[in-house]
Write a protein that binds this DNA or RNA. Structure first.
Lengths: 117, 117
DNA sequence: CTTTATAAGTCGCTAACCGATATATAACCA
DNA sequence: TGGTTATATATCGGTTAGCGACTTATAAAG
């Protein structure tokens, strides 16, 4: 599995993986976490979210966590589906962060060069 | 003009603006510069390049530099079209780099949090 | 018993990218 | 002379990911 084949990630996808990197979550929780994580800047539409989850599952970057979400499944709404980041998913996420770091470094060099003459 | 309305930029678009931030260039020169700038990682297809240039022109983020490219227009190929970054384009580029910096910072925090427990 | 919050899913559209292909021009060289 | 290569711009068809709008389902609150 070559992480670079999955890059670059678009912003919503990056935030979804990043959200799952801390704890396993169900879709709606990801939605809220991403909004908080991005300081309110990124508000995923539910279509973006659920389509991305299906795609990431298909790619093996995330996986379903089976089982009836503890015993306390007395929450409103449809039954939750909990996801986790797979090792592949974590590698892709790390690779993307490394890519972004390089990008920022390159950009800053260029912008400095442009400003200094 | 609200720079954030143009964000996030996709990777090819970011590199095109970044390439023009240093010097004015024609399309083909951008193509080669982006490849060098990205250490060979990003090879724009000509369709991506010229469609992006048309779009960026339309958005006012770049502009044509008129005039027959100095007197020495004895280069092969069709006549060159030289572009420059507009002030708006530079603001958008700067905003994008700031966005990316924030993204990297957020991601590193999250990844540290995930690793430490 | 209607509204609100939670939760998942679907549809049609669009923007941006990409591979393939076309066209034009000058230089090189056999 | 005429074929190849490098330079240079342009267009077409297809794909992907995101997004707005909408739908369905469930429990609690009022």
């Amino acid at each position: 599995m070559e992480p670079s084949a999955y890059l670059p990630l678009r912003e919503p996808t990056l935030f979804i993986l990043l959200s799952l990197s801390a704890d396993n979550k169900h879709g709606y929780a990801i939605l809220q976490d991403v909004e908080a994580l991005s300081d309110g800047r990124v508000e995923l539409s539910t279509s973006t979210l659920y389509e991305a989850l299906a795609r990431l599952l298909d790619q093996g970057l995330i996986a379903r966590v089976e089982g009836p979400a503890a015993a306390d499944d007395q929450n409103p709404g449809r039954p939750r589906k909990v996801y986790r980041l797979t090792p592949s998913g974590r590698r892709v996420l790390n690779a993307e962060v490394v890519r972004l770091q390089g990008l920022v470094a390159t950009a800053q060099q260029r912008l400095r060069a442009a400003g200094s003459c």
